[in-house]
């Protein structure tokens, strides 16, 4: 179940995949983090189940990275707790680290090492030995597409390749939870598509992923659920469709005709699911209060059956960017 501290929007339960232990893989419980008078994280709570990708969205300075750092055992909350696979990041950070892979927004590499040495070092750091280590290295190098440049020094890698290497480092110990802070930052379109495939592939393997990004269209495509944070507070969370439905419970419909636009406007008055009609000679705009596509199809059929010469019937869908702009104010602390 995805919960939000923003109680003004009640959300339905998304399809959840539970672990054998029966608890969410990521759980933030009333998390607070202050820096002086700044409330970097202010009462944030949400949960992410196994096999889910959670998109964490917010303007710069909203508190995304701070809460991700707390989840990754790099910082302590002032109040509240965060659990990874049921283990507290405050009280059992060692157990959390075994289950968690974190990819920060900076690269963090050793320039004079090569890719395979870098991954080998982190495999050893996670206590992976023997055949398990060679297997983990082989799998990670192949999965991230670094197998062809395994011997290449890190200082000679492009930004995209470094991102892959960092993702490889985060997943070398096969963690159940992956936290990726701005993974698509600075990547070219092809690399972004590949990253999206990687993330969906990891989720399909049953991992829980928390991904932050500024590229909202991509997040909308790869995430099962999203959470929007601003000024340290989680404003809304849920699936993209749910949030769209809750924030704007109607669809804007545009009907273009060859003629008799104003007549169609009058005809539409009082029809089921139709409201706010604006008609001109050739164009009719209205709001359709149902997200069922069969209802939309039925309306179109009835207009055509009534003999109106319809040229185009389109619904204006709202992107994640529209939602983001609607519910955030752009205010910083």
């Amino acid at each position: 179940m995805v919960t939000s501290s923003a109680t003004d929007i009640a959300l339905e339960d998304p399809p959840a995949v539970h672990t054998t232990a029966g608890h969410p893989m990521i759980q933030l419980r009333r998390l607070f983090r202050f820096f002086g008078r700044t409330r970097a994280v202010n009462d944030v709570s949400f949960e992410v189940e196994a096999g889910q990708v959670f998109g964490y969205i917010g303007p710069n300075g909203a508190g995304k990275t701070t809460s991700m750092r707390i989840l990754s055992t790099l910082d302590l909350p002032d109040y509240g707790d965060a659990l990874v696979d049921g283990f507290s990041v405050v009280n059992d950070p060692d157990l959390v680290r075994k289950r968690l892979g974190f990819m920060p927004d900076h690269f963090g590499t050793y320039p004079n090492m090569n890719c395979v040495e870098y991954l080998d070092f982190f495999a050893r750091s996670y206590g992976i030995v023997g055949r398990e280590r060679t297997k983990a290295l082989r799998h990670t190098l192949y999965y991230t597409g670094l197998d062809k440049i395994a011997e290449k020094p890190i200082r000679g890698l492009s930004k995209g390749m470094r991102q892959r290497l960092c993702l490889g480092r985060a997943m070398i110990h096969d963690p159940a939870v992956l936290i990726l802070d701005e993974p698509a930052n600075g990547l070219d379109p092809r690399a972004r598509i590949e990253l999206r495939h990687m993330i969906r592939g990891l989720a399909a393997d049953g991992k829980a992923l928390l991904v932050s990004s500024h590229i909202l269209t991509e997040l909308g495509e790869m995430c099962d659920t999203i959470g929007i944070i601003e000024r340290g507070q989680l404003i809304v969370s849920g699936t993209v469709a749910e949030i769209k439905a809750k924030l704007r419970p109607h669809i804007d419909v545009l009907i273009q005709l060859v003629e008799r636009g104003e007549e169609l406007g009058s005809w539409l008055q009082g029809r089921e699911h139709v409201q706010e009609i604006q008609a001109s000679d050739l164009v009719v705009r209205c709001q359709f209060v149902s997200d069922d596509q069969h209802d939309q199809a039925a309306l179109l059929r009835s207009i055509v059956d009534a003999g109106y010469p319809v040229l185009e019937f389109s619904t204006e869908s709202r992107s994640l960017e529209d939602i983001f702009l609607q519910i955030t104010t752009g205010a910083v602390q």
Binding site: L74, R97, G108, Y110, S125
Partner: peptide, 13 residues
């Protein structure tokens, strides 16, 4: 400086 300390911190080391 190289931002690798955090990566070491979250490993099993």
């Amino acid at each position: 400086e190289e931002s690798t300390f955090e990566l070491l911190s979250i490993s099993a080391l």
